[in-house]
Design a protein around this nucleic acid. Structure first.
Lengths: 334, 334
DNA sequence: ATGAAAGCGCTAACAT
DNA sequence: ATGTTAGCGCTTTCAT
């Protein structure tokens, strides 16, 4: 292995001079600089960032901890994070918790051991343990997509209450009175907020008595499952509001399997759009969140905090949701 | 920051003893072990793996470099890698090259600087530069999904020639004589191999004169594009063979946009299945590759090499492909 | 503009 | 079963 020492010897300078050239810190005459650079390429020298970080106390590494790497919504967030981080010279470690609190805490240990400079976290639960762990180890955290009660961190998210309200209002305006919501886990802020928005819209329309609320998880299988339950009722709903894209897919599957047409027999709306990439015929009426921007803004906030550019108090950034009306919500009155 | 020194002092032992307890290396009496563990929890001590790795020359970190993180095929591979690696105590760094040779080489630098123990690589090109760079820095590489000419590495892949042959044969048996192949970049082994399999099937059926070969890239947009080109011919094909899932989606989109029914007007088959998760109504007849197992076997091979358990010569593992017949290929004769 | 010395936190090597 | 010493490769600090 070639070290900074070898380069220094070859260039006839001290190791620290090589360091200064590599990192562009401090002075170095044009001539020295060239000699060092020649030595570097001749030797094929690769700096050891472990040693660098051990000494400098900075790894220039961020971690993105998310709950479901198979969901395009999070994949797009990851892109936003990656692009923004690498622009500022940071690399990103991706961690997938599979919506598990234990998995999240396990990764937190690993990341602290790896001395990451900061963490972008999509929390898998409403428990503040992970955040507190990071903070007690002086690792700044930015929450993304979901918030957690009683913690002091920067947050970047959308207004799920409003998005849900708009989606359900759209169904009500179409004439629906029996609308069910199929949501995620009760402890997740977005799952709760979307139910809240749903309730708001119903209440406003004088339909508070018609509430049909189902909690589950943000998966296709659970979406199918919840749809089975709600459609088995003696007077089933004429419209479904699904709290994320995978739940929408599961619910649509159940409806088709039951011989029900969407939107003719049952209307469907949901959170989170599917990427153009994967869809042949865009069909779902959705509340689309700006996933890329969420990753971007979250990373910007985190880097600001790391470089001392952020204000003392924590910031909460709320990004706008776009309602995209397509076929699944239907046009007909009931 | 709490160091191994602080723990040692609190437990009344030498730092090396703490090290031995943490890493389960060498002896330690039950009593000492307990004293150390108490001190660790009391102080909330987190080992600094940077320092550990600097000294021990092992980071217990692998890198997975892939070409398109948004493609579920690679996401599933990533799962296989992650699960296998973490079972053996390795963590994984994920890198996305976006099919760019430059991006790939850039990541290679970063990974070498980070001193990763080994790399699982889905090459973005047929160029051996990246592999040679890793090897010259004593970092073992396992190629996955795609191979590269003239390099000595372990490889885990599927038999694309055979998969393509079977798919095209299926179309021929259905009566098709004008079949086009929409493939990926010419320099990618899988893109080439799938064309080779296509040619084999045509030749065998005495249809060598009917070849319609289109190279492009493994994206939905390019799939659409190539389909535009081929369907504009004066006597367009009655069947399309798409070299990956995204190309299939793009091609299907173009056919629908042109008012053509699949499979009634044009039959469609392709490589790589879409995950159940994301599909409402499985439609494509595909050659499905065991993505999870590919990640798994590749990681196993790499870890064997790192721990000295692998034979000297490089291994090539060919995993079986499954042909799944669904609606898109049709049943009718032409 | 350049260098010498020291030390980041840990473990390999060698004691005892 | 435990400890001492040294040093991994780099950069901080303080010189010159």
């Amino acid at each position: 292995m070639t070290t900074i020492h070898d380069v220094a010897k070859r260039a006839g300078v001290a190791p620290i001079t090589v360091s200064r050239v590599i990192n562009n810190t401090g002075y170095a005459s044009q001539e020295t600089r060239e000699r060092v650079e020649t030595a570097i390429t001749e030797l094929g020298y690769i700096p050891n960032v472990l040693a660098r970080s051990l000494r400098s106390k900075r790894t220039n590494t961020l971690a993105l901890v998310m709950t479901d790497i198979t969901n395009p919504f999070f994949t797009v967030i990851a892109r936003g994070v990656e692009d923004t981080a690498s622009e500022s010279g940071y690399t990103v470690i991706y961690c997938n918790t599979d919506e598990s609190e234990t998995g999240e805490y396990k990764y937190a240990q690993i990341l602290a051991q790896k001395q990451v400079d900061g963490v972008i976290l999509v929390p898998a639960c409403s428990n503040s343990k992970t955040v507190e762990f990071f903070q007690s180890n002086n690792i700044p955290v930015v929450l993304i997509d979901r918030s957690i009660p009683d913690v002091e961190t920067d947050v970047v998210r959308c207004d799920s209450v409003s998005g849900a309200y708009q989606l359900v209002k759209l169904l009500i305006d179409l004439g629906h009175t029996r609308i069910a919501v199929l949501s995620g886990p009760r402890e997740i802020s977005t799952a709760e907020d979307r139910v809240t928005g749903y309730r708001l819209a119903l209440a406003e329309a004088g339909l508070a008595g018609n509430e049909l609320v189902y909690y589950g998880s943000f998966t296709q299988a659970k979406g199918y499952d919840l749809a089975v339950q709600v459609m088995a009722k003696t007077s089933p709903p004429t419209a479904l509001f699904c709290a994320n894209n995978f739940i929408s897919i599961g619910a649509l599957k159940l409806l088709r399997d039951s011989g029900l047409r969407v939107p003719e027999d049952v209307a469907l709306v949901g959170f989170d759009d599917l990427p153009v990439n994967m869809v042949i015929d865009p069909f779902f009426t959705v509340a689309a969140q700006p996933a890329y921007e969420m990753g971007q803004r979250g990373t910007e906030l985190l880097i600001e905090r790391l470089t001392g550019g952020a204000p003392d108090e924590c910031q909460e950034v709320i990004l706008p949701i776009e309602i995209i009306v397509r076929k699944s919500s239907g046009l007909a009155h009931f």
